[in-house]
């Protein structure tokens, strides 16, 4: 039972399950819940309720529900109707206290960030088939403590039907016609984290890049300097020889700067400044301060 095993338990389904339980006062019989989610009239010949069961499984894995006999109890704070707000909740859960098996979700993402940095882009994703990509990731992942001999923790089905939808839902990347099967691009997520960063660091003043990056690494530990990022570096067995931000983070910071959500400042020359990954199309190649803009949602 985990987000990667219950592949039919997609994020929007888990969200609706929690809303269903909330509508019933936070408790509902297991069978009733299944009947709500997969009405018998539309189950088809196989009368399958796998999707409902796996959605319940995903919600359990995230710790949002628990069982009380034959009842399902909602074990989450107030569930917002707004999907991005629910994504915040899921992100916080996966970051702060994921189940043993769900920890892999953000660990894999960290690997994508690190490998994209090592390969200087995302073509390494585009060049691989879904199967080979999943295998490539799998060999770098630790085996669970309770199943140290487990052959695979990640495969193409988990990648395509579970991991990727969750990552997109969390605002960590995209898929699309002209993109690799997954394109790490956490702008939406970082934008969602800005109010929290603002509360923590203050808005409207120039922040030392180190302070900003440390706070960011706590909120998004799969990015530069975060715990998951560092672990991924170890797993990839790769050390960067230069001190600059990753391709993924640099792009996000530039994007939010262009959108006016943050300001990247460079005072004086680049000596001592934090360098961004090169982008010849952008005027900002380094920063000496970051300013969070107030009044953001």
């Amino acid at each position: 039972m985990s987000l990667l095993t219950d592949t039919m338990g997609r994020p929007e389904r888990v969200h609706t399950l929690l809303k269903l339980l909330e509508a019933h006062g936070g408790r509902l019989g297991y069978d009733e819940t299944v009947a709500w989610l997969q009405p018998s009239i539309l189950r088809g010949e196989k009368n399958s309720t796998d999707a409902a069961k796996q959605t319940i499984g995903s919600a359990r894995s995230l710790g949002f529900i628990r069982d009380d006999g034959n009842l399902l109890l909602l074990d989450a704070p107030s569930v917002s109707s707004d999907p991005p707000a629910f994504a915040d909740l899921v992100h916080a859960r996966l970051r702060d206290n994921p189940s043993e098996k769900d920890r892999v979700m953000l660990e894999v993402y960290a690997l994508f960030v690190v490998l994209t940095e090592r390969e200087e882009g995302t073509s390494w994703i585009a060049q691989k088939t879904v199967e080979s990509l999943a295998d490539h990731i799998d060999i770098m992942l630790p085996r669970p403590a309770d199943e140290p001999q487990q052959q695979k923790v990640f495969n193409k089905d988990k990648y395509s039907t579970a991991w990727r939808p969750w990552m997109i839902y969390l605002g960590l990347g995209w898929e699309g016609l002209v993109l690799p099967t997954f394109f790490p691009h956490p702008t939406v997520r970082l934008e969602r984290e800005l109010p929290g960063l603002g509360q923590e660091l203050g808005v409207g003043r120039e922040l030392d890049p180190g302070d900003f990056l440390r706070a960011l690494a706590r909120r998004m530990p799969y990015l530069d300097g975060g715990t998951l990022f560092e672990e991924a570096m170890n797993r990839v067995r790769w050390r960067r020889t230069t001190q600059r931000l990753t391709v993924v983070l640099s792009d996000v910071l530039r994007e939010l700067h262009d959108d006016g959500r943050i300001r990247l400042h460079l005072r004086g020359d680049t000596v001592g400044a934090t360098r961004l990954a090169p982008d010849p199309t952008h005027e900002i190649q380094a920063l000496s301060a970051v300013e969070l803009i107030g009044g953001q949602a």
Binding site: E12, L18, K19, L20, H24, R43, G44
Partner: peptide, 29 residues
């Protein structure tokens, strides 16, 4: 309603209908 309330597995849907019961249930109640 079937279409509005459907949460398919993927872009093209799938064999199993999955309902956005979380939005429907409060309305019925």
């Amino acid at each position: 309603l079937r279409e509005l309330a459907s949460l398919p597995q993927g872009r093209k849907g799938g064999a199993q209908f999955f309902a956005a019961a979380g939005e429907v249930a409060p309305a019925l109640i």
